[in-house]
């Protein structure tokens, strides 16, 4: 450091953070849907080094998802229209939890529904799984009974979904917001009001890509969710806005592939971050990011990573 302020010597910085009552070894966890049910990556990385594990989105019944093609590469990103294919909450409890419960890291179940009743029922069934540390509610889904309006794009609908879940859920609740709205702070305040213990943002940005030779959309579903480095500036901006609008902790997601990217989110005010698309490019991405955070703290003389959270200078 060239500044006059001498940095202090730090040998082993503290990376541990707390979110909604959960103690995490470090602020790094996978983003839902990019890490399967954890076991898929067990051969590549030490899952116990992760701050937490977030599962694929779960629904009341098993879900087949969309027809293929489901993915398309775009500039510095990818579109996906997986359609929330998952094994269902019961199968998850029976066949995926036995593996996950043996790990020494908190397990967060991501889930969704297509009606308020379904959200409530999944919350109830998740509460029967004792080893779950928290639940992450995905509100980027249409309310099938109300003409398909996406819960997360309307403050009233978002509030209703969170209320329906809160009633049944016996563990900390993280609510994951969609960026496909005019003002994300309105939704953030609504879900905080309804009882969210933490807010996670952002989910994917709706996009579309066309094969000019066939003149067909490159996804069978026509549109899909954009993820990867391309969305990072949007995600950082939204985290910055949400952090100012609410009191609950915020988890930042969107385009993180390196430690510096994660640091952007922490400095913007996120207490932890999730890594999604980067896992596909490099299964070791989260390990590299954890190592990179530690190195950054040592280099900058920061003994506790929490001191970076919200340290944005304006």
């Amino acid at each position: 450091m060239s500044s006059t302020q001498k940095t202090q010597q730090v040998e082993k910085p503290n990376l541990a953070v707390e979110i909604a009552g959960l103690s995490l070894k470090n602020p790094i966890m996978p983003a839902s849907g990019t890490f399967g049910y954890g076991e898929e990556y067990a051969g590549y990385i030490d899952l116990n080094r992760l701050g937490a594990i977030v599962t694929k989105g779960l629904s009341l019944n098993p879900k087949a998802g969309n027809p293929t093609p489901r993915i398309a590469e775009t500039v510095s990103g990818m579109l996906n229209a997986i359609g929330l294919q998952n094994v269902g909450v019961q199968d998850f409890a029976r066949h995926k939890m036995p593996y996950l419960r043996e790990l020494n890291t908190p397990i967060i179940a991501n889930f969704f529904g297509n009606s308020l009743e379904e959200y409530g029922e999944v919350a109830k069934q998740l509460s029967d799984i004792p080893e779950l540390a928290a639940a992450e509610l995905n509100i980027s889904c249409p309310n099938v009974k109300k003409g398909g309006i996406v819960f997360g794009t309307d403050p009233k609908a978002a509030e209703a979904a969170v209320t329906a879940v809160r009633k049944h859920l016996k563990m900390p609740l993280i609510v994951k917001l969609t960026p496909n709205v005019t003002d994300i702070t309105v939704i953030a305040r609504a879900v905080e009001e309804a009882g969210a213990d933490a807010i996670c943002c952002i989910n994917t940005l709706t996009g579309m890509s066309i094969d000019v030779r066939t003149r067909k959309p490159r996804l069978a579903n026509r549109t899909g969710g954009l993820s990867g480095p391309a969305i990072r500036p949007v995600a950082v901006r939204m985290v910055h806005q949400v952090v100012q609008a609410v009191k609950v902790p915020v988890i930042g997601v969107g385009g993180i592939i390196r430690a510096e990217d994660a640091l952007e989110f922490l400095i913007a005010g996120a207490s932890a971050v999730q890594v999604g698309t980067a896992n596909f490019i490099n299964p070791g991405a989260m390990m590299d990011i954890i190592d990179g955070l530690e190195r950054f703290c040592i280099d900058e003389g920061i003994e506790d990573i929490n001191r970076l959270v919200g340290s944005l200078e304006i």
Binding site: G36, Y41, G65, T68, R70, I71, M78, N80, F280
Partner: peptide
């Protein structure tokens, strides 16, 4: 079409 190659993305 594949993104992950390991059964995680369901693409």
């Amino acid at each position: 079409l594949m993104a992950c190659g390991v059964g995680a993305c369901l693409g």
